[in-house]
């Protein structure tokens, strides 16, 4: 093996590692960010790799959103039934919840091949 061969091997391994880091996602579906819309307007784009709490204002008041361990959930929102709070954690692309009284939609964009095309209820 010559020095050039070794150089190519090293380069190939480095290239593979770079591609792996750039493209590989567990299950091909790790969610990286969530969007928050109020009245059909995107008001917030949340990085799901950063834990924290967020608040957005809708017509009825404040909707509170928490991010933890790559997941996002609504912790509080005005409205009697609070369906979006009960929906709990969202962690997959395509997941979404809607706080209808306060016109807030929290969604993780995208879908994956193995996921469903939709849900009927």
């Amino acid at each position: 093996m010559t020095r050039v061969d070794i150089a190519i091997l090293v380069l190939a391994m480095a290239g593979t590692a770079t591609l792996y880091m750039a493209l590989w996602q567990p299950g091909g579906s790790a969610a990286r960010y969530a969007t928050v819309r109020v009245e059909d307007e995107t008001v917030l784009r949340i990085d799901l790799r950063r834990d924290g709490v967020h608040a957005v204002e809708g017509p009825l008041g404040t909707t509170r959103i928490q991010v933890s361990e790559g997941r996002v959930r609504v912790t509080d929102s005005p409205g009697r039934r609070r369906i979006c709070v009960r929906d709990g954690w969202l962690d997959r692309p395509g997941a979404a919840t809607v706080c209808l009284p306060n016109r807030v939609v929290v969604a993780i964009p995208g879908t994956t091949e193995t996921e469903l095309d939709g849900i009927t209820w």
Partner: peptide, 13 residues
Amino acid sequence: HHRRMLVFGTMVD
């Protein structure tokens, strides 16, 4: 291409 909208009292996607 996706679009979500609040219409018919629900979220239309």
